[in-house]
Design a protein around this nucleic acid. Structure first.
Lengths: 161, 161
DNA sequence: GCCCAGATGTTATAACATATCAATAGCACT
DNA sequence: AGTGCTATTGATATGTTATAACATCTGGGC
């Protein structure tokens, strides 16, 4: 059943299964342990395909008997973020499954302020003006946060002819 | 040439006074009220010259008898951010005085993970790859968050022998 | 004086995140 | 199998960031 994700429709079950399979493989290769709580957390994030707060995730998990205290959710999220399977959206204090799982990338996000949907894209911010400014200042960039807030196609004002 | 401020020495009293004067003028012109709590909050942010949490600001204010409850700090910060006198650093959940007060700009930040100092520079993220991605997706960008975490010049490892 | 909008005072609570310590499970090595 | 190491989980408590809600005050136009 296609549903809207990012901002485009696609076969969602398929994308969830593909991502999980990639995560399994990556963990096997890297010696990481995708334990039940971690795997289920990733699955939930993938299935929702939008930014979830840690307590939103926790609500899902506890409904399934996988843990009821905040650390359960935060530990799972920490693992997923470290492994590159999920990203934190700083502007929302929320978490989202990585849309380019397995691909090395520098994520950037388009966040709809109306429906809270989030699309992940890719940038090279450290190679543009920001990189120049950092270089001039003698600053070493280790990680970048690039997030754009605005309106997704579905939430644009209709008329505005 | 992007402006970067924050890792260099300068006449601090002077920069605080200049910024306050600009804020006074801007408020007068725009019909905004730079009340005592708001003005003092800006002064504190300017004087500290680093990112402060809302509760850090509140501690300063309450020590001076200017209010003791969280909303006091959040209201002042909200005003300052709306007026463009301060910015929120999303990656730190903290606030910093604007370094380019009065100049129209799209802020970006270099955040030292070691000493927590923050430099403000500017970017045009919506005109690069991010803008292209937004355009392709039909997304309208209203605000961007661009933050780089890393090490400032003073916190670089001395000699990678 | 009266009204109104914006600002402030105050209480309470929501939302997000981590410290700490004990118990357990997986794994390498003998 | 037994030992010891480390990662993970369980559980309690607490710390940190942010807002809801409602009462009160203040300044300016009429």
């Amino acid at each position: 059943m296609p549903r809207t994700i990012g901002f485009a429709k696609h076969d969602h079950d398929d994308c969830v299964q593909t991502a999980l399979a990639r995560a399994d493989m990556h963990c096997a290769n890297a010696g990481l342990r995708l334990t039940p709580v971690r795997r289920r957390s990733l699955e939930i994030l993938l299935a929702e395909h939008r930014a979830l707060g840690a307590y939103d995730l926790l609500a899902h998990l506890s409904a399934e008997g996988l843990g009821a205290q905040p650390p359960v959710a935060y530990r799972a999220l920490d693992f997923l973020v470290r492994a590159g399977f999920a990203h934190k959206i700083e502007a929302l204090n929320a978490y989202i499954a990585c849309a380019h799982l397995g691909v090395n990338h520098t994520p950037a996000f388009l966040i709809c302020r109306s429906c809270r949907s989030v699309a992940e894209t890719d940038t090279a911010p450290a190679q543009g003006r920001l990189g120049d400014a950092a270089k001039a200042a003698g600053f070493t960039i280790e990680r970048t946060v690039v997030e754009a807030e605005g309106l997704c196609p579905a939430c644009q004002p209709e008329s505005a002819s």
